[in-house]
């Protein structure tokens, strides 16, 4: 996994709530057997017309907006557990997703792929959208060490929560699997204790 520490970037606003993982990456694109290439089909049905040409009104097709931060409405990532949603966002180039609420499985999948979910208050989310509305190139700072998200133009900043273990993994680029593999003896011993029941 890639390491993450701080990021200063402009952001892409997606002020829609309940964005489910079927929107992030529709099922018909889940046929690939590798992790790469999903970015091309990120938000496919919102991003492209049925003939494959870009829908001009969709935010990712608007050259005014760019950056490695996606800012979305509440309950982002609900629905299917497909990790492909996190892969698609990361493959497209996003490093951070901001919302006032994340679905559980998506949050976990994002963290397992070096994509930082930053959950902020509804008011602060509103302030972020306003800052982008005022200036589409408005810059934001994400500081994982200090757990802060800052609107640079106004100086407003909010603290966000992250599991200390997950934070350590993101900062060092560690995967859960490395840790679990180091526990194999304990796991085997645990299995012995519950053999009669299982």
């Amino acid at each position: 996994m890639k390491k993450f520490n701080t990021l200063i970037s402009s952001a892409v606003p997606l002020p829609i709530e309940e964005v489910d993982t079927d929107q992030i990456i529709p099922a018909r694109f889940l046929k690939a057997t590798t992790r790469e290439g999903f970015g091309d089909n990120l938000f496919c049905d919102w991003r492209y017309l049925p003939d494959g040409s870009p829908r001009p009104e969709f935010i990712l097709n608007n050259p005014l907006y760019s950056g490695q931060i996606l800012v979305a409405g509440r309950n982002f990532g609900c629905g299917s557990s497909r990790e492909h949603a996190a892969w698609a966002l990361a493959d497209f180039g996003f490093l951070v997703v901001v919302s006032s609420f994340f679905a559980d499985i998506f949050r976990g999948n994002a963290l397992n792929n070096g994509l930082l979910p930053v959950q902020v208050s509804a008011d602060f989310l509103h302030a972020i959208f306003s800052a982008i509305e005022t200036n589409p190139k408005a810059a934001f700072e994400v500081d994982l060490e200090r757990q802060t998200f800052t609107i640079i133009s106004t100086g407003q900043s909010e603290h966000f929560e992250i599991d200390p273990y997950k934070k350590m993994c993101m900062i060092n680029g560690y995967d859960d699997i490395d840790f679990l593999l180091s526990l194999k003896e304990k796991i085997t011993a645990f299995e012995q204790t519950r053999l009669p029941k299982a």
């Binding site: 990790e83 492909h84 976990g108 995967d175 699997i177 593999l181 526990l183």
Partner: peptide
């Protein structure tokens, strides 16, 4: 679970 976790369970059953 997500695919990274599928890998974890395959590798460690945990």
């Amino acid at each position: 679970i997500g695919t990274s976790q599928v890998e974890q369970v395959l590798a460690t059953q945990c």
